[in-house]
Amino acid sequence: MVRAVPAWLRGLAWAFVVLAGLFLLGPLAVVVGVSVSENQFIAFPPEGFTLRWYEKALGTREYVEAFWLSLRLAVVVTVTATLIGGAAAIALSRGRQAGAMETVFLSPLLIPTIIFAIGMLMLWSSTFGPTSFATLWLAHTVVTLPYVIRTTLAVLAEADPFLEEAARTMGAGRLRCLWHVVLPQCRPGLIAGAFFAFNISFDEAVLSLFLRSPGHNTLPVQIYGQLEFSPDPTVAAVSTLMILLTIALIMILDRLLGLNRFAKA
């Protein structure tokens, strides 16, 4: 690390980091504040302290149903994206023409989601009719796939390329080699990819808005609808619960893999 950075600049850097932190985290803190405020209307700073908005949110059928829908969706998407993405990543890590294939598999990251969203809506409606849970499943799996592939590839890139050959010389057949050697190596990448897939699917709003079917809203779409028309502190309570879920996810990820890994990269 470079020492001898002028003192005034160090001070400035600290002030800058604090301001950036406020800017990044402020909007989240505000939502949490509103969710426990006694004020009937959305206002900040909060007045008093109450948990009744949480009570109200948990008693509202739309929110509860939206939560279960989002959860179900995120779980199936995570499973499918991890399976398919993991397999593709293993194949990519061996491939000779990996470059072109990799671009193909990461292309959903390059194309704006909204463009993909309306394409999906148009294709689905013309082939299968009204959109359903399956539409969202398919669409979310496509957009989360690149994340699984990227995290898994990153792990495999650091692995010893001769491990597989070594295993073969020790008498492991192809399948056993895949199971006992390759998969354990992929594990951290697959876990990280699965977390991102779950998080993205659970929080995703654009695809879900375009592809929603009447009466079946995911949680972000439900919140979006409320914000568009009549935001009240109940939305803040639901939003706070989503923030808490994110924090929980980050903590679990840290426990399983250690965030150091991401900090070093």
Binding site: P27, V31, I42, L227, I243
Partner: peptide
């Protein structure tokens, strides 16, 4: 943390602010 929080929630924060 903000990156992994839904855009909808973050935007809500700005609506309040």
């Amino acid at each position: 943390l903000p990156l992994m929080t839904s855009v909808v929630v973050r935007t809500f924060g700005w609506m309040v602010l």
